[in-house]
Amino acid sequence: MGGIDGMDLGTFGIYTFDFERRPATWMRESIQELEELGWRAFWMPELLGREALTHAGYLLSCTERINVVNGIAQIWSRGARWTYGAALLLADAYPGRHVLGLGFGGEQRPGTKPLAAMTAYLDELDSAETVNPAPRAPMRRILAAYGPRMLELARDRAAGAQTYHVNVAHTAQAREILGPNAFLGVEHAVLFESDPGRARATAREHLAPYLASPYNVAKFRRLGYSEEEIAGGGADRLVDDFVFWGDPETIVGKLRTHVAAGADHVAVQVVGIEPGGSAMPYWRLLADALLPRPTDRST
């Protein structure tokens, strides 16, 4: 399967919104602990107010080994010229440790379709590169992609794709489209709750914004979920497919099904954390279950 040239993200990483809400000191201490635990990749979105590239730069400055992935930097939030300049600096300052993940987000230009917008953005990035090429380490970019045409664009114009809130069947479909050489990173939500009623209620709270989003609803339809399964907070089948819940052994087993289906990397998002709480206890638990032991973490 594929990978990102010159970069080892490991098979499993962390994806979280939590760092967009926390003070800088907490972020620094937390990501340093994650690095010590052996996590090789840390993914964060751009949604709640933190600017994507300065956020990545700060986390890189706090660490020595962990890879930081923008998942994603919104293309409608900054011009391609400025995205290129920021990512170029990060590639030069932290060789082989930053991945620029791009996705359609921010204030959409009226009448612009996501595929056309992403293609034009990549054209602008490539144009900027011809004027100001990377001096040392190359920039590495991936695209948020779900449908076949965006996956093809990720295969042809980037190192690969990131998917978000997909099922295992989609991972297999994405791998087929991407081919064997492009990188495929898959985000998946997990919930450490074994009671079915409580687990599904919490999972529905997490999924509610996505079940109301036209782009996500279209994605769910393409994956074979009926209107009835999407409506009313999501049927059990949909909820169980998009939030892996249960005891640690069950969750870990389900996460590995994405790898078996063709994912190079699975970014795990822990949900169901109480307001003001931290996912750190679960990240420690997952490190023990998913990461190589300290004696063989170089493998």
Score class of each variant (00 low, 15 high):
168 V>Q: 03
146 Y>K: 00
156 D>I: 02
99 V>G: 02
136 R>E: 07
159 A>L: 09
136 R>G: 11
160 G>M: 07
124 E>W: 08
137 A>F: 09
113 K>N: 11
156 D>S: 12
94 Y>G: 03
149 R>K: 15
137 A>Q: 06
155 R>M: 07
121 Y>D: 09
104 F>S: 14
134 A>W: 06
142 I>K: 03
158 A>Q: 04
157 R>F: 12
149 R>P: 02
102 L>F: 04
167 N>V: 00
128 A>W: 13
151 L>F: 07
125 L>R: 01
160 G>I: 08
158 A>N: 09
120 A>E: 15
164 Y>E: 01
129 E>H: 11
157 R>L: 07
144 A>D: 01
122 L>T: 02
165 H>V: 13
168 V>H: 02
146 Y>D: 01
139 M>Q: 13
104 F>V: 14
152 E>P: 07
132 N>G: 02
129 E>S: 08
153 L>P: 07
166 V>W: 00
136 R>N: 14
135 P>V: 06
159 A>T: 03
161 A>R: 01
120 A>H: 10
111 G>R: 15
156 D>N: 14
137 A>P: 07
161 A>T: 01
97 R>F: 10
117 A>L: 10
128 A>E: 12
105 G>T: 03
150 M>T: 09
108 Q>T: 13
105 G>D: 09
118 M>F: 12
138 P>Q: 06
107 E>Y: 15
100 L>R: 01
155 R>E: 11
167 N>P: 02
108 Q>I: 11
102 L>S: 02
138 P>E: 08
148 P>K: 15
103 G>A: 07
169 A>R: 08
128 A>V: 01
93 A>C: 14
110 P>F: 14
111 G>D: 10
136 R>K: 08
115 L>R: 10
101 G>A: 06
148 P>I: 04
161 A>V: 02
141 R>V: 04
123 D>M: 06
132 N>Q: 09
99 V>H: 08
105 G>W: 12
127 S>L: 09
153 L>D: 03
112 T>D: 15
142 I>M: 13
165 H>P: 00
133 P>L: 08
101 G>E: 04
145 A>R: 00
95 P>Y: 12
159 A>V: 04
108 Q>C: 08
159 A>H: 15
131 V>S: 12
95 P>F: 10
164 Y>Q: 01
160 G>L: 09
106 G>W: 12
128 A>L: 05
137 A>I: 03
120 A>N: 07
113 K>S: 13
105 G>F: 12
112 T>Y: 15
125 L>S: 00
139 M>L: 15
147 G>H: 10
135 P>A: 11
